[in-house]
Write a protein that binds this DNA or RNA. Structure first.
Lengths: 236, 236
DNA sequence: CGAATCGTTGAGGTCGCTCAATCATAGTGG
DNA sequence: CCACTATGATTGAGCGACCTCAACGATTCG
C-alpha cells in the first residue's frame, strides 16, 4: 500500500467495523492508483462496458449534456468515492465523467470486484450503504436546484463541499479550497455563468468566500452554515 | 399469490432470467399486499427504522420539504418499484413518501429481505440493478429541472411516465392517464402551480394533453416524444 | 509577448414568480 | 334536490430573478 489507509476503506469503516481480512482484501484491490491529469475525460455518456473507478486523490465531476448544448453537472466525487459505478452495473454509462484536478484513481476490475463482494458479503453491505449515501446527496442536489434561490443554492453546495472535506480531513479550521471553475459550478447549480458570478460576488461581499485564480476559497465555513441553516443530515 | 406475476418479478426478470426457486422465494415475500387509500403518508423525513415497500398497484410519490415551506417531489414510484429502500438501508429516511392513488403495497421485512438476498445472491444482483436504474431516473430528473425550460421539462416528465406505463402495459395505444394533481406536478418540476398550469395549457393547445378532473390525460404520446426528442435511454 | 482561458461587469430582455380573483367539481348536511 | 363548503384548476396583472449578448480585465502558459 502506498498510503496508510485509502479513503474508501476509511469511509466504509464508518459504516461497519471491518475485520482485518475484509480490510486486507479491499486494500489489495485498491492498490496502485494511477495518476490522471486535470481535465481528463474518463468516459462519455452512452459508452458501453466502461470502467468504474475509486478515487484515491483529487476531484472528479460527472455530467450530462442536453440537446440544446447545455450541460448539467450531476455530482462531484472526492477521495473514497466511486465514479461510474452505475455505468458498470447497467452496462451503459448514463453520464460522462472527467477529472477536475489532477487525480489518483483506481480502476475497478469488474470480475475481481464481484468476487470480492461475494467472498465478503459484509463488504457488499457496506458498499450498498455507500451507494445509498451517494443517492442521498443526489436527492439533496435535486432539491437544491428545484427549490432554492441562486444564492441559497450556491451556499448550500459550498456547505456540502465543506462538510465532505472535513470528513476527509481536508478542511481543518474554518476554511477550505474548492478547485471548481465558475463554468462548472454554474453547470452544477443550473445557473448561467454570469449569474453565478454575481451570486459569488454577493457571497464575497458578505465575507464568506474569496475567488482566487482558478479556484474558490471559502473563508468562513461556519458563517456559511449559519446563513443557510445547512444541517447536512443527508450526509449522516 | 393474488395475481399471476407481481410487477417486481416481471421487472427483475427483464434484467436476468430467474430460476424457479428464486422466483418462488421472491414471490413468497411479495404475497399479501395491503391496501392504502389515496393521499396516505407512508413515512416522513427524519423517521428512523421506517418500513420499505414494494408497490403492487398504484402510484406513490416521494418528496422533501424545504426551509421556506416549499416542497420538492423527488420521484414517482409505480408498480414494481421500491419505496423507501434507501431509508431502510441508511436507517433514517432522507425523504417522505405518500400514496397518490389508492395503492396495494407490500411492506418489506428487513430481516426476511436480507435473508432472501443472501440465500439468492443473483436476486441481490438484480435488485442492485434495479436500484441503479432508479438512480438513473433520478439523474435524468435532475438534468430536467436544472437545464430545461418549463415546457420541455413538463413534456419530458410526461414522456417518462408514458414510457414507464407502457412497460407496465398501462399505456396501450397513444394515450395514458397520469393521476397527478397540478400542485404535485409543479412541485416535481420545480415550478409554481400557476406557471405549470400555463405550461399545460400550451401542451393542451398543441393537442398533446387533456386535463380532466383531478388527472391529466396524455392524448398523443407519440407527438410528445417527437416534440421533445425524448429518447429514454436512461430507462434501459 | 501573444494567445488562451477564465473571471467580471453592464445593459436589456424574458421566463417564471407572487398575489389575488374567479371558475369547476365533488362531497356533505339539511 | 339544494345550498354550502372544500379542493383544485384557471386566468389576469405586475414584478423580479435569472438569462443572453457583448465587452473588458486578469491570469496562466508556451
Amino acid at each position: 500500500m502506498a498510503e496508510p489507509a485509502p479513503a474508501l476503506v476509511r469511509k466504509l469503516s464508518r459504516f461497519a467495523a471491518m475485520e482485518a481480512r475484509e480490510r486486507a482484501a479491499l486494500e489489495a484491490l485498491l492498490d496502485r492508483p494511477v495518476a490522471f491529469p486535470a481535465r481528463t475525460e474518463l468516459f462519455y455518456e452512452g459508452e458501453r462496458d466502461c470502467a468504474a473507478y475509486v478515487i484515491a486523490e483529487g476531484w472528479v465531476y460527472s455530467y450530462k449534456e442536453v440537446e440544446d448544448g447545455g450541460r448539467q453537472v450531476v455530482n462531484f466525487q472526492l477521495p473514497g468515492d466511486f465514479v461510474g459505478l452505475r455505468g458498470m452495473l447497467l452496462g451503459v454509462c448514463d453520464h460522462a465523467s472527467a477529472t477536475l484536478t489532477g487525480c489518483r484513481l483506481v480502476a475497478i476490475d469488474r470480475d475481481r470486484w464481484e468476487r470480492l463482494l461475494t467472498d465478503f458479503p459484509r463488504l457488499g453491505q457496506a458498499v450498498l450503504w455507500a451507494v445509498a449515501h451517494d443517492e442521498s446527496m443526489l436527492v439533496e442536489h435535486l432539491v437544491n436546484i428545484g427549490r432554492r434561490s441562486a444564492y441559497m443554492r450556491t451556499a448550500y453546495l459550498l456547505c456540502e463541499f465543506g462538510h465532505r472535506l472535513r470528513v476527509l480531513g481536508q478542511c481543518q479550521g474554518n476554511e477550505f479550497v474548492c478547485p471548481v471553475g465558475q463554468a462548472i459550478l454554474a453547470d452544477a447549480l443550473g445557473l448561467s455563468v454570469v449569474h453565478l458570478n454575481r451570486t459569488l460576488r454577493k457571497l464575497r461581499e458578505h465575507g464568506l468566500v474569496v475567488v482566487r485564480g482558478n479556484s474558490l476559497r471559502v473563508t468562513d465555513f461556519q458563517a456559511l452554515v449559519e446563513a443557510t441553516g445547512f444541517a447536512g443530515d443527508y450526509l449522516r
